[in-house]
Design a protein around this nucleic acid. Structure first.
Lengths: 254, 254
DNA sequence: CGCAACATTGAACGGTATCAAGTATGGTGG
DNA sequence: CCACCATACTTGATACCGTTCAATGTTGCG
């Protein structure tokens, strides 16, 4: 079961099944909670958030989709979406309509296993968020999210030593960590004052990774460095920068 | 894709693949984080918790397994477990070893889809927990967990109008909602004083479901009333009480 | 240039944690 | 059957973390 990657045949099949990439502006709502699945969306660029709003009006972000992530797995598996998904920054997506996903699954059994694995990975990430909101203090909580985003972007080849794009506003951040915007602002200033990060409106650079990881109690194991959801599905032209530190052989984690 | 249930053949195959049920006492550790999958465990009776401990020593429960739930999906999909699982009460389990799970999947394609769906459902539940820990106050948060447990037990046929077994200690509850034991105690007293619940050491009865659900902002949609993970996999002798309000026909939710 | 969105700052309030007792409850051995 | 012990539950006082409200800077874009 481990090391199951898509076969070259399945890989090619997926690439052909995807629609032409389309771009959407910030705030576009892509998925509506309780609506039936409209297919899978592969993030080629940008950031989207999975978000739930309570009766009381407060909202909580329960997941972020970065380059290479797959949107719509929950809806595909359960029949309907469990959260709203909207673009936090301008984004580029490739869609595979529901019918074609079903056809792919029927024809290539390894694809469903990959989708299952991707679902389990999103579960692991969400689990880590839950730990943070339940038991971490604001400082560690925010630091952890920054670590996670930077790490995931690096896996996707979208970050280098000089940092990564960071299109989240402080209020989007606050929504993700379950804090108020005001407090997130203060925590970010603490992290800056300690020379742990540099963060501008659009760019994040982690100055002192070891110390930030210590503050955050960050252990990237749950991100499964060996298996990107769909990074390998990107058309050749969409692979930006070099995939530093990664190769195409399956990674053994046991 | 919707309404996909196991075919009778697959159903029978799973039942035959399971080991004889075994009983474990409270506090038994069943799964260790980062360890490879040792198969799937179907909960026949009792409660188990999925739990992560931070460096600092504090721990957070990220999932509860009740009758009918499947333990080990994450490990099966990802190759290693993402959390520790231990028994919160005496429990009875049926195990399907990894090898046999693989064989089942290879032979009956619909089984993998069911496992994928079960994984997605656990994801939806965890999502709801994350919302609670991020945005709900202690009262609503505790009320919500009580609603969820009571509802899931009712789906599993383990609860009636007179209430359900509730083997969780207050400190286990606190661990699940991300609060201190002391505060959970106070919140429970509030709920009791308002005549919303009756809760003894081992039994929970929801006195005023509508009002409790209102306090909790509880909407059971995410629990997917039509699809128990593995309730239907229980050997006939293991089906306790009557499955009130449920039948064996697939339920359409669209 | 002016407006709107985002970021920053301060003061006061409130929810929850923590610490430190004390009180049921159930199980066990004599 | 009772005394005892361990575990769970309850209660109060205090401190802190994070929220809320409100105002002021700042940035970028049409």
């Amino acid at each position: 079961m481990r090391d199951l990657r898509l076969t070259p045949t399945s890989f090619a099949a997926i690439q052909q099944a995807a629609d032409a990439p389309r771009s959407i502006p910030t705030d576009t709502r892509l998925v509506e909670r309780d609506h039936p699945a409209d297919g899978l969306h592969i993030v080629l660029d940008g950031v989207l958030a999975s978000c739930v709003t309570l009766e009381s009006g407060v909202s909580q972000t329960v997941g972020l989709y970065l380059t290479g992530d797959i949107i719509g797995l929950d809806a595909m598996a359960l029949g309907q979406a469990t959260a709203n998904v909207y673009a936090v920054s301008p984004a580029r997506l490739a869609r595979i309509p529901t019918g074609r996903v079903k056809a792919l699954i029927a024809e290539h059994p390894d694809i469903m296993e990959s989708l299952w694995r991707a679902t389990a990975r999103q579960n692991a990430i969400l689990q880590e968020w839950a730990i943070g909101m339940g038991r971490r203090q604001a400082l560690g909580q925010v630091a952890h999210l920054l670590c996670e985003i930077a790490f995931r972007l690096r896996l996707a080849g979208k970050a280098d030593e000089r940092g990564c794009d960071f299109p989240l506003t402080q209020s989007a951040l606050a929504d993700a960590v379950g804090l108020s915007t005001v407090h997130v602002n203060r925590v970010l200033q603490l992290l800056r004052a300690d020379d742990l990060i540099q963060l501008t409106r659009t760019r994040l650079r982690i100055v002192d990774w070891p110390r930030l990881a210590a503050v955050a109690d960050f252990d990237p194991g749950y991100l499964g460095s060996g298996d990107m959801d769909a990074a390998l599905l990107l058309p050749p032209g969409d692979t930006q920068r070099t995939r530093e530190g990664r190769d195409r052989r399956p990674m053994h984690q046991h």
